[in-house]
């Protein structure tokens, strides 16, 4: 038998571990997806393939609750991601395109603060804050909290992109009689677009995903999809939860794939 040529980079077993890693990552999602198409009301026994639980999600006894929760999640995610992306774009411009200044390092620290503080601590602090200023808990408190912790997630791809854009482009624009504002809107912003789109998608998913902070700051009776699902799961995993999960899973994967394709396309141009 011919032996493989000696390859320094190859370590035996690493491929196996990589495959194991992917199996661990995908097996739970795959299993839930499969079982969401099980017609049986029991989650243990497989009966037959059916869309029963998907129909149940939209028309069943709990459908109104979940529809309202999904609507809340969507509205919050859109507003929070848009606001956070705008704030992050402006902040990145100041940090990366406005020279060195005293508040620069501190600003970077402030922007990444929500990433460093454990989520549960942010949740507690935000709850206490709204309590202390007697701000009534509800959709608004969720939205405000989401805007704050989405900022660093939007900021990361935006600043990464901006670092890749040479300052000479804006200098060339100014040399060609563009004002600072024109250099920003006509040159920097279009070049930034892939980063901004990635930042928005990232912030959107993070907002849609959040459970811990939402669970703390939401008002009584106000639910987002994750808190509604958590509430239902506490009573045991039911097939309709698996159908909702599969739907959410599909949404996440579609969005991430989209952002990946946008990112790749940009590199090849």
């Amino acid at each position: 038998m011919a032996t493989r040529p000696y390859d320094l980079r190859r370590y035996p077993g690493f491929l196996g571990i990589t495959i194991l890693c992917l199996v661990i990552l995908y097996a739970p999602l795959l299993v839930v997806t499969i079982y969401s198409f099980n017609s049986s009301p029991s989650i243990t026994n497989w009966e037959e393939f059916s869309f029963r639980w998907y129909v149940d999600v939209f028309t069943g006894p709990e459908s109104d609750k979940f529809k309202q929760a999904a609507w809340n999640s969507l509205i919050i995610a859109i507003i929070a991601a848009t606001t956070a992306t705008t704030i992050a774009t402006l902040a990145a411009t100041a940090v990366l395109r406005a020279g060195r200044f005293r508040l620069r390092t501190l600003s970077i620290g402030l922007i990444s603060l929500p990433l460093m503080v454990p989520e549960i601590v942010t949740a507690v602090a935000t709850l206490i804050f709204f309590n202390a200023i007697a701000f009534e808990r509800g959709l608004m408190t969720i939205l405000l909290a989401h805007i704050a912790f989405c900022i660093p997630f939007a900021y990361m791809p935006i600043s990464a992109r901006m670092q890749g854009i040479e300052a000479t482009y804006e200098q060339a624009a100014q040399d060609l009689y563009a004002t600072r504002r024109q250099a920003f809107t006509r040159i920097l912003l279009p070049l930034m677009m892939p980063g901004i789109v990635s930042g928005f998608i990232l912030a959107f998913i993070i907002s849609l995903d959040d459970f811990i902070i939402t669970n703390f700051v939401k008002g009584a009776g106000v639910e987002t999809l994750p808190t509604a699902i958590f509430g239902a799961v506490k009573q045991g995993i039911k097939p309709n939860i698996m159908a909702i999960s599969t739907l959410l899973l599909a949404v996440s994967i579609v969005m991430v794939t989209l952002s990946w394709i946008i990112g790749r396309k940009d590199k090849t141009s």
Binding site: P28, V31, L208, S252
Partner: peptide, 13 residues
């Protein structure tokens, strides 16, 4: 990128 709650529930399942 899949919801953490859903991933955890799937793991439990």
């Amino acid at each position: 990128w899949v919801n953490l709650l859903i991933r955890t529930v799937s793991m439990k399942f």
